[in-house]
Write a protein that binds this DNA or RNA. Structure first.
Length: 391
DNA sequence: TCTGGGGTCCTAGGACCC
DNA sequence: TCTGGGGTCCTAGGACCC
């Protein structure tokens, strides 16, 4: 049976958050700009750049969410702690993220793509896979048409990669960033994919690439020629074989156009580490807030869940989780709180904490919201006053 | 002055059932 | 009474992604 030839694109918005901010503050174009930290600020559009806060003014535990290419040239990358970023680029400007705005632009660019190619897999706020198999047009022209449509709808540039599968399309979209259009076919794999670092494979993170390096495997080509037995020994059968397939450019995974969420969560990192005894009241209040916000998220999105869990990170960054499965799915803050309390009893709180999180899993879709919001808020408020989760 | 917040998937052991 | 195997659910942790 002949294999149906697929044509898959991966489209990634260039420095998305920062680029959206540059639409708002065009006077900052060309400067090193970092998005990150907490809080929201609105700056008058006529402000001179000198009045924007600089990275060197920052104190806290935030990370860089996005950096413009000018900031990246100074060594700042997304995920980097802002304090470290400030050492590398003290004069870079720092803007807090405005997620509502980015979400609006995200919808705009996805709708623009959908007007040309409707089979889209969402991969977060700034990237998608597109199944172009059944869309008419020569590959390069079609990809350019999609990029043009995105720019027309948003004013933003994107990078697109087209290949026979998602794995290669993802690598391709990253090859010539920004504002890139890269087509990769099977015959290009040896010349264009194999020289790249194994870390470029979606699914190979910092841990795996370090382990691979210890085995003398640096590039995707090294991986393609690696000893399968040795890989299975170190990574298990499933992942070991997957690594080799990935290095050979093999990937049959489907473009998934619809997906139900598996879990919904809320978490927060404290501005300073908190002591389970000394900061008991504060920790209880933070946890109650998380439960309420999570309950509101569930209600707004139309889900309830059976498995309630807590996540807790100690000052040394070690993380523990506990969860409990209830008989009935819930979205009620009060029920969530009860389950959280059960979970907390199973954790030894002998060290300072830096993070608390609450999660609801095993989700069920619920129909209409029949709860009276006002009455519910009052009930929650009332019991908050008398409830202490840390004791 | 390291390391956010929101997710997904995988593994692995134990309970429990057939 | 012993032995065995499969399937599913629950829980905890780890790696990874945006």
């Amino acid at each position: 049976m002949p294999v149906m030839r697929r044509r898959i694109a991966h489209l990634d918005m260039d420095a998305f958050y920062a680029s959206v901010e540059l639409l708002r503050y065009p006077q900052l174009k060309g400067l090193a700009l970092v998005i990150g930290g907490r809080g929201r600020c609105d700056y008058a559009a006529e402000n001179a750049s000198a009045q924007f806060p600089r990275l060197s003014d920052y104190a806290g535990r935030g990370v860089a969410t996005t950096a413009t290419y000018e900031a990246r040239a100074l060594g700042v990358h997304s995920g980097m702690g802002l304090m470290k970023a400030a050492r590398l680029a003290p004069d870079a400007l720092l803007l807090p993220p405005d997620f509502d705005r980015y979400t609006r632009y995200s919808r705009l660019f996805k709708a623009a793509v959908a007007s040309i190619a409707p089979r889209i897999e969402d991969r977060g706020i700034d990237e998608i896979y597109i199944d172009l198999t059944d869309v008419a047009g020569e590959t390069g022209e079609l990809a350019q048409r999609i990029k043009n449509k995105v720019r027309q709808a948003t004013g933003l540039s994107s990078s697109i990669g087209v290949a026979p599968n998602k794995l290669l399309a993802k690598i391709a979209s990253d090859l010539n960033k920004p504002d890139a259009l890269t087509v990769v076919s099977e015959s290009d794999i040896a010349a264009r994919i194999w020289p790249l670092s194994a870390r470029k494979i979606n699914g190979v993170g910092p841990r795996t690439s370090a382990k691979l390096a210890a085995l003398g495997i640096q590039t995707i080509g090294d991986l393609a020629h690696a000893n399968a037995t040795e890989l299975i020994e170190h990574f298990g059968k499933h992942y070991g074989l997957w690594l080799i397939d990935a290095a050979l450019g093999r990937d049959e995974s489907a473009v998934v156009t619809e997906r139900e969420p598996k879990s919904i969560s809320r978490e927060t990192t404290f501005e300073r580490d908190l002591d389970p005894r000394g900061d008991r009241e504060l920790l209880s209040q933070i946890l109650l807030d998380l439960c309420e916000r999570l309950s509101a998220d569930l209600s707004r999105k139309g889900y309830a869940g059976k498995t309630i869990g807590v996540r807790l990170r100690y000052a040394d960054f070690t993380t523990v989780t506990r969860d409990v499965t209830l008989e009935l799915a819930t979205g009620e803050a009060e029920t969530i709180r009860g389950a959280v309390r059960t979970c907390l009893k199973r954790i030894v709180l002998d060290r300072k904490l830096r993070l608390l999180g609450v999660r609801v899993g095993s989700l069920l879709r619920i129909e209409a919201q029949r709860l009276d919001g006002g009455a519910r808020r009052n009930a929650v408020q009332e019991s908050n006053d008398s409830l202490r989760l840390f004791d």
